[in-house]
Design a protein around this nucleic acid. Structure first.
Lengths: 195, 195
DNA sequence: CGCGACGTTGATTTGCCTCAACGATTGTGG
DNA sequence: CCACAATCGTTGAGGCAAATCAACGTCGCG
C-alpha cells in the first residue's frame, strides 16, 4: 500500500510522531474504483474519508433538467469527503464517480474518530481541511460570478495542472458552467492567439 | 439589552440550562452601527461573533474592477461572523457594512471560547452553525450557476422576506449578480404578469 | 435650493446557448 | 476481429439573456 503521498499531505499541516504515524497507517484501507464506477452515489451516506493516490474522480450533481453538473475534481494528492453526509449521516446530494481508474486510501468514520481521539494533531489537521474546503468553495463562488468563461478556464488550468489534457472537453466545460461547443471555440481562440 | 431573539435562535439547535443561559447573557455586549458605517472593513481582523437584533448588514467584496459585490445580507435574527478571519486571525477579504441603523449583540473571541469551554451544548451549536454556513454557500453556488436571473430573484425574496422592499434596487441587483437596469426590467415584467 | 444618487426606459451590443451537421475516435456485440 | 453504434470534438447559423451606454424624471439630503 502506497502511503508516502498521504503522509506528506498531512505533514504539510501537522506533525505526527513515529508512533502516531504507525497508528495512522494501520487504519488505512486501500480501495480501487474503475473508470465510470461510483465511489458515492446520490442518496448514499458517506461513511469514509478518502485520499486519492492515483487517478481522478468527478464530484457532480444532476440539476433540475437532469443535466450533470461537475462541481469539482479530486486528483492525485487530493482528499475527498462529502462532509455534510459524513457528519450528519444524511443522503448525499452529490455523486462521486471515477473519470479514470482510481486508487484511493480510505478511513472509516469509526477510525476517523479514533484518530482524532488518539492524535491531537489529527484533529487540528481535520479542522484545517474543512476550513480550507470552505474557503475553496468561497473562491469558486466569487470566480464563477465575476469572471468570464475564458478567465474561469485559465483558473481551472492553474488549479488542476495537466487535468485539461487528461479528461474530456465536455467534463471541463461542465465544470466551467459552459457548453462543450463554446469551450471548443475558446480553445481555438487561445491557440490562434499564440501566433 | 434585548436577549430574547438570540436565546430563541440558540434554543432552536441546543438546550441551555438556566445557569448556562445566565452565563451566556453575562458575556453579551450590545453594539450599534449606524447606516453606512462599517462593522468590519476589508483587511481588518474579525474578533467577535455577532447576532443581529435589528437592522441590516451587507457583506461584500470589491472585485478586480473595483465594483462592489454583495455576497449576502444579515438581517434580524441572523448571525454574522467572518469565520476564516475569526479563526485564523487573518485579514478579512469581505467587509460588513450597515444598510440600516443596526443593533447587534457581540461576543468576543475570548468569551466565545469561554462559552464553548463551559457549555458543551454551545460547542455543538457553533459547529452546527458553521456547517449550516457551508451548506448555505453550497446552495448559493448551485443556484447561481443553474438558475436564470428571474429564478434567483424569486429565491432571494423567499430567503430574505420583505428585504426587497427595505433596501435599494441596486443592492438587490448586486446580490443577484445582475445590473440594476436589468432588475428594473424584471420587476416590471413580474408586475405586468400579474394581470 | 441644487446636487448627487436613484429607478426607469430604450437602443445597441455581446457573451454564450441552441440546434444541426460532420468527421474522427472509441467502444461493443456478434 | 470486424462492423456498427455511440460518443466525442469541431464548426457554423441563428437566437436569447443580460450587459452597456445614454438619457431622463424623481427624490432625499446637505
Amino acid at each position: 500500500m502506497r502511503v508516502d503521498s498521504i503522509l506528506s499531505s498531512i505533514s504539510r499541516y501537522a506533525y505526527l510522531s513515529p508512533s502516531e504515524i504507525e497508528l495512522f497507517i494501520s487504519v488505512l484501507e486501500k480501495k480501487t474504483v474503475r473508470k465510470k464506477d461510483f465511489l458515492i452515489r446520490t442518496g448514499e451516506i458517506c461513511r469514509h474519508d478518502y485520499f486519492v493516490n492515483e487517478g481522478c474522480l468527478k464530484i457532480c450533481y444532476a440539476n433540475d433538467k437532469g443535466i450533470e453538473c461537475v462541481t469539482k475534481f479530486a486528483i492525485e494528492d487530493w482528499w475527498a469527503i462529502e462532509i455534510e453526509s459524513f457528519l450528519n449521516m444524511t443522503p448525499s446530494f452529490f455523486y462521486y464517480q471515477a473519470v479514470e481508474d482510481t486508487e484511493l486510501l480510505s478511513i472509516s468514520k469509526t477510525n476517523h474518530y479514533l484518530l482524532i481521539d488518539r492524535i491531537p494533531a489529527y484533529q487540528k489537521f481535520t479542522m484545517e481541511r474543512w476550513q480550507h474546503g470552505f474557503i475553496a468553495l468561497q473562491n469558486r463562488f466569487i470566480q464563477s460570478n465575476s469572471f468570464t468563461a475564458e478567465e474561469k478556464y485559465d483558473r481551472f488550468k492553474q488549479k488542476y495542472p495537466g487535468l485539461d489534457q487528461r479528461i474530456s472537453l465536455r467534463l471541463t466545460a461542465s465544470y466551467l458552467g459552459i457548453t462543450p461547443e463554446f469551450l471548443s471555440v475558446l480553445r481555438k481562440r487561445q491557440v490562434s492567439a499564440l501566433s
